[in-house]
């Protein structure tokens, strides 16, 4: 690459439209790549696109800050996208009404399990208190997790990081884990994906089937709201 090429490339890399366009393109490429390899869950499109973008930023030497400014539209779109989950939920209304006991069972198991397994595992390996508190709300959707983290004295930025990584782990390994323990019901799988790994898990569930996607969105929403109310209350009881 000549100096002139490099200058041109850098000026392009700093243009917001390029950041956004490249991210969308890389995500579509990641989906194609996954299809090419028979839909292997290890090639989760979100994760692969993140790796592509990080590689691109490192190679071009573009700054992460200017990248985040360039793609600010995408996190903004997350809100409307979550709201649009109402559509698959509405299409599955009859099934949701018939699944009350399952939804209650999933939340009663999944909400405490998500928090205790994370805090317990980190504590066993001697993580700092700051890490323990920040990792507690890792299974709920980012916006709620950050609020909860603040409320219980965690580090919001660290929590956001844990939330994203949790989503990727759940999206990659969740369905295989559920299959391994003999779960066949797509509603149970969807609820577990949404409760255990929020939106990124829901993205995976939506690709499995509309039933899994609808129940995942439902699990994510209910778990998020209940955690926002219950976790700070539980912390106050433990440390008055």
């Amino acid at each position: 690459m000549s100096a002139a090429d490099r200058t041109l490339w850098l000026s392009l890399a700093d243009a917001p439209a390029v950041d956004l366009g490249a991210t969308v393109l890389l995500y579509v490429l990641a989906i194609k790549l996954q299809r090419r390899f028979g839909g292997s869950p290890v090639l989760n499109p979100t994760m692969v696109a993140v790796l592509f973008v990080v590689a691109g930023l490192e190679l071009t030497g573009a700054s992460y800050e200017s990248y985040q400014r360039g793609v600010a539209f995408l996190p903004f779109m997350l809100g409307p996208a979550v709201a649009l989950l109402a559509v698959p939920l509405f299409r599955q209304t009859a099934l949701i009404r018939a699944s009350g006991p399952m939804i209650i069972a999933a939340l009663s198991a999944g909400l405490p399990c998500g928090i205790l397994s994370a805090v317990g595992a980190a504590w066993l390996f001697g993580a700092h208190r700051e890490t323990l508190v920040s990792i507690a709300p890792k299974s709920v959707t980012t916006g709620i997790a950050i609020g909860v983290s603040q409320a219980v004295g965690g580090v919001p930025a660290l929590t956001a990081t844990f939330v994203i990584l949790t989503g990727i782990v759940g999206a990659v390994g969740g369905p295989a884990a559920a299959r391994l323990v003999g779960v066949r019901d797509e509603r149970a799988l969807g609820l577990a994906m949404g409760i255990g790994s929020h939106g990124i898990g829901t993205a995976r569930a939506l690709r499995i089937s509309e039933i899994a996607g609808a129940f995942s969105g439902l699990g994510m929403s209910l778990n998020g709201v209940l955690t926002a109310v219950l976790l700070p209350a539980a912390m106050t009881l433990l440390h008055p």
């Binding site: 399952m102 939804i103 069972a105 999933a106 009663s108 198991a109 999944g110 399990c113 998500g114 397994s117 994370a118 805090v119 317990g120 595992a121 980190a122 993580a127 990792i135 890792k138 299974s139 844990f162 990584l165 949790t166 782990v169 759940g170 390994g173 969740g174 884990a177 559920a178 391994l180 323990v181 003999g182 779960v183 066949r184 019901d185 509603r187 149970a188 799988l189 609820l191 577990a192 994906m193 409760i195 255990g196 790994s197 898990g201």
Partner: peptide
């Protein structure tokens, strides 16, 4: 916490739900 906790949570939740 991230790998063990998340996989455990999804497996346990799915089994209990089913």
């Amino acid at each position: 916490a991230l790998v063990g906790g998340t996989i455990t949570t999804i497996a346990v939740t799915a089994v209990v739900a089913e």
